[in-house]
C-alpha cells in the first residue's frame, strides 16, 4: 500500500516552449509530507507542476505518482461564472465521484455564499472556491500552483489549516509559493539548483507532434 501511495521523482527535466527550464529534479514524498517549491518567476515551477499533473510530458526522467491520485490547482480556478458556488463545486464533486460538498464549503467558509453566482464573487472568494475543489476530488496528492494568490491573511490561515489536515489524513502536497503558508514541517526545495544549462534544444519538434 505504502509503495503505491509514495511519490517519487527522479532526474526529471522539463521544458516550456522549446526552452529547457529545469533538469535533474529529484525528490520523494511519503504520505503526510508536503514539499514547497521555491524559485524566482519564470524558473519553471508551473511547468514542473503541469508535468507532474500529467498535462505535459517530461523531456527525460521518471515520475512515479499514485495512480489517478493527483489533484491539480492551477492559476486558473476552472470556475464557471454563470453557475452558483454550489453548482460549481457539485460538478467537480460528481466528476470525481464524491457525493458530499458540505465539508468543502465549510472548510473554506463558503457556506454563506453557496447560492451566489460565481461571477459575482470577489477574486479572493473565487480562489477559495477553486481551492475547495481540492477537497471534493478525494485525491491524495495535491499539486498547488501559487494557491494563496489574492487570498487575505485569514484565508491563507484557513488554507494552511486545510493543507495541514490533508497531510494529517495521509495526504501529500507539492506547493509552489512565494509566501509563508505556516507549514513549518514542509520541506523546501529550491529549484534554482536545478536550472537547465542548455539554452535551446537541438531536436525541438513540439510543433510537429
Amino acid at each position: 500500500m505504502r509503495g503505491a501511495m509514495e511519490c517519487m521523482v527522479q532526474d526529471l527535466s522539463v521544458a516550456r516552449g522549446g526552452v529547457p527550464l529545469l533538469q535533474g529534479v529529484g525528490f520523494s514524498l511519503v504520505p503526510g509530507e508536503a514539499l514547497v517549491l521555491r524559485a524566482p518567476n519564470g524558473a519553471g515551477k508551473t511547468t514542473l507542476l503541469r508535468c507532474l499533473a500529467g498535462l505535459q510530458p517530461p523531456l527525460s526522467g521518471q515520475v512515479n505518482l499514485p495512480e489517478e491520485g493527483v489533484a491539480y490547482a492551477s492559476h486558473a480556478d476552472g470556475i464557471k461564472t454563470q453557475l452558483s458556488v454550489r453548482e460549481n463545486l457539485r460538478f467537480w464533486a460528481s466528476v470525481h465521484g464524491v457525493a458530499d460538498i458540505g465539508e468543502a464549503l465549510e472548510r473554506f467558509d463558503l457556506v454563506g455564499l453557496q447560492t451566489r453566482l460565481a461571477g459575482h464573487l470577489s477574486a479572493g472568494q473565487k480562489r477559495r472556491l477553486g481551492l475547495a475543489r481540492l477537497l471534493v476530488t478525494g485525491r491524495p496528492l495535491w499539486l498547488l500552483d501559487e494557491p494563496t494568490v489574492s487570498l487575505d491573511t485569514s484565508a491563507v490561515a484557513l488554507f494552511g489549516d486545510v493543507v495541514r489536515s490533508h497531510l494529517a489524513g495521509g495526504g501529500m502536497a507539492i506547493i509552489a509559493t512565494h509566501i509563508d503558508l505556516g507549514l513549518p514541517e514542509a520541506r523546501v526545495l529550491e529549484l534554482g539548483a536545478f536550472k537547465a544549462r542548455a539554452d535551446t534544444m537541438d531536436t525541438f519538434d513540439e510543433a510537429f507532434l
Binding site: 503541469r50 499533473a53 500529467g54 498535462l55 489517478e68 493527483v70 489533484a71 491539480y72 492551477s74 492559476h75 486558473a76 480556478d77 476552472g78 470556475i79 464557471k80 461564472t81 467537480w92 466528476v95 470525481h96 465521484g97 475543489r133 476530488t137
Partner: peptide, 14 residues
C-alpha cells in the same frame, strides 16, 4: 480552456 476547466478535466478521472 480560458477558465482553466479544461486542464482540470484532463486531470479528472473522466
Amino acid at each position: 480552456y480560458e477558465d482553466g476547466s479544461l486542464d482540470l478535466l484532463a486531470t479528472a478521472p473522466l
